[in-house]
Design a protein around this nucleic acid. Structure first.
Lengths: 265, 265
DNA sequence: CAGTGGTCTAGACCACCAC
DNA sequence: TGGTGGTCTAGACCACTGC
């Protein structure tokens, strides 16, 4: 009796976990599996869909299928109670240490621009356009700082493997012309710069959702069509409640687990 | 030219979002869609797989397909900085208020038992068996409190729709015989009772992962095979660092978003 | 029993990539 | 150009549910 696609998926999963197909290696072609298991290609394909959704393998059209290279990584979203500018750096340190333990180097690339931010971001900043009224007449000056944001796009890698995409938005009337627009934001990073500008982050929030990747995200993260991403929307507010940073962090869901730690009182 | 499965999925998604198939209503059978779009049933099926993974529809074998009833819900994991026993109650209040706004009633059922907890839980409690040594000889007494846990299984509903499954584990040497073993744990809930027992929760951590649902979870949560769940592992520790509660919370990923809020310093 | 989705086949054509 | 996966068909049989 031939195997069903679930049984085939289980068998292949066991082989991957058993080391028969090592991380990063080439996975057998569908035609080969069709012959080995003596089922139709459609059945093999459905078995592979399972493994793809789980993030165990990744297919590239015209190229072939490869086994996932990295183990699941941990993203430390809060360390204990005190999240200060310095400790935000510590979280990055924890990530680097984790990767170093796995034999990888944590690396990132930053791109900076100043643009009109998406409506969702403007809304959080409290800069959304109100239909009608005065704003209509000020069309010509919309490109002024009030409606602009400094954008820091950070691409993170574990060795050569892209693992995270973070887009930081800062109100241009605060950040424009400051070192927030530099590649290297200096000691303590952007949070220290915000503090120096009189907008020290005092309150943080994160909102975690799961969704399909956009095309550009999928391309950068080398995502399979079946794979989902976590989207973490982090908002930092100063002590007057003004949003001074919105960070949209996109991570392949199969590649990460998120941890939060905090103290009572 | 016939439509592809993606186009069909897009069309059906638009109909759902446009209200043509209202929440909770019956969705057309695959055969009907096969005729309408003039494609093979396989193609219709693949289109539906997309919508199922997104949580827009849910199929039941032998019964048919229905449109998701509830909108996405928000789970407030931390409210501001101070998480005290009282405010843990507030989070529940926020959930009830949210549901009330949607016209649903928040409801839950609690089942209590005292059992040997899974190895993973025992490990967190620091009660895992060490191979060899004294513990070997104490097999007969293993069922004493040192290796037992009080288990509170909470099933949560929005109206009649199951939305969450939470399993709370408490070390039996702390919780056995206390009102933690009662249906109604009294004012302030289990955290207040732990405080009275000299084990006030002082440090919390949560670990968020995404996974397939186990069979029993899928059955209770009425999950489609394509749908994934968030698993949140919450650990509460007292001021000596001892784990006094482990809570495994399982939520359909398409049904929830998670939020965390905290203060700097 | 009728209706529903689950799964499978054998073959086909196409798009994409590396050589 | 050859190898890879993407997608589709027309038909089939099965399992499960509700009547």
């Amino acid at each position: 009796m031939p195997l069903g696609y679930r049984a085939i998926a289980d068998e292949l999963r066991a082989r991957i976990e058993g080391g028969q197909y090592p991380p990063g290696s080439r996975f057998p072609a569908e035609d080969a599996l069709t012959q080995e298991f003596d089922v139709s290609r459609q059945t093999v394909n459905k078995a592979l869909l399972q493994l793809r959704a789980e993030g165990l393998i990744r297919v590239e059209r015209g190229v072939g299928t490869t086994v996932r290279e990295l183990p699941v990584l941990t993203s430390h979203r809060i360390r204990r109670q005190r999240i200060t500018q310095r400790e935000a750096g510590n979280a990055r340190g924890a990530f680097q240490a984790e990767l170093a333990g796995l034999g990888y180097e944590a690396r990132s690339e930053v791109g900076i621009s100043r643009e009109r931010a998406p409506a969702r971001i403007m809304e959080i900043f409290g800069l959304d356009d109100v239909p009608g009224g005065r704003s209509r007449k000020r069309d010509a000056s919309r490109r002024e700082t009030g409606h602009m944001a400094v954008i820091r796009l950070r691409k993170m890698f574990a060795g050569d493997v892209p693992v995270q995409l973070a887009t930081g938005y800062y109100p241009a009337d605060i950040a424009a012309g400051t070192s927030i627009e530099e590649q290297d934001t200096g000691p303590g990073g952007t949070y220290s710069r915000l503090a120096e500008l009189g907008h020290a982050p005092a309150l943080f929030s994160e909102r975690v959702t799961l969704r399909m990747a956009a095309d550009d995200e999928a391309a950068f993260l080398r995502l399979d069509t079946e794979q989902r991403v976590y989207e973490v929307e982090r908002v930092a507010r100063d002590d007057r409640g003004r949003a001074v940073e919105v960070n949209l962090i996109v991570m392949p869901a199969h590649q990460w687990q998120l941890t939060y730690e905090w103290s009572a009182e």
